[in-house]
Amino acid sequence: MPENIYEPYLMEITEILQETPDTQTFRLAFKDPSVKEKFSFKAGQFGLYSAFGAGESTFCIASSPTRKDYIECTFRTTGRVTSELANMNVGDTIGFRGPYGNSFPLEEKFYGKNITFVAGGIGLAPVRCVIWNVLDLRDKFKDVHIVYGARTYTDLTYKHELKEWEERKDVHLVKTVDPGGDTPECGCTVKWNGCVGFVPTVLEQSTIKGGKDDIAVVCGPPIMIKFTLPVLEKMGFVPENIYTTLENKMKCGLGKCGRCNVGNFYVCKHGPVISYADLSKLPQEY
């Protein structure tokens, strides 16, 4: 890590994938081979990505730590930095600081367990990192279930990977779009073969059998999370085994700029990964 903690690594965009009309995935490679050599991270960690001239923005690392030669990030165009990033091309340089924050306790708690992933919209990005990590070490885990939904077909991210997971025998994927969401948008006509319904409802009606030893990883819009939690508990999951990642506004990622805290919990340092058992002890300020 450079002496100046605010100095980013320079990275080249090697691939751009347009996930939805406003969401893109960048594949990034370190420009400095010695950094590439040394760099490592864990599932759940995040970084600050900079468009030089516009500023920095915080996203999770969306690729799996098992894929060594690159990192990926997925972002939706909302502000100054993401607009600038969205206009970039393969070969352009961006900055990356990280990895920051804690990670999902894969070895400590997930090994040998049934794992259920629940995600909504762009919330699949942090979950996808864990999914690939789990799939790349498939024999260390028992059953793997994924429930993923978005407002419409168009809003589903990682469509190519959804297909792959669907075809794999060792993963059970349930994909869904919100009621009314299967209407083809942007002129594309799709024959929808998934469910129609909100994520919590679809989860409840699925074949997944929760248990107190089973692990759930949940990420998505606050409203989805709010309704998903009681469903998971009803299914038999316990709060200690339900994990999510918190997303508060951040500027430094280093525990200094003072804006991501929820009570005495600094999302950038103590988080972003947190269990529901721990989250329920924090003030409602996220």
Partner: peptide, 9 residues
Amino acid sequence: HCFDITDDA
């Protein structure tokens, strides 16, 4: 001690 980080270019 809170701060913001901005770019100017």
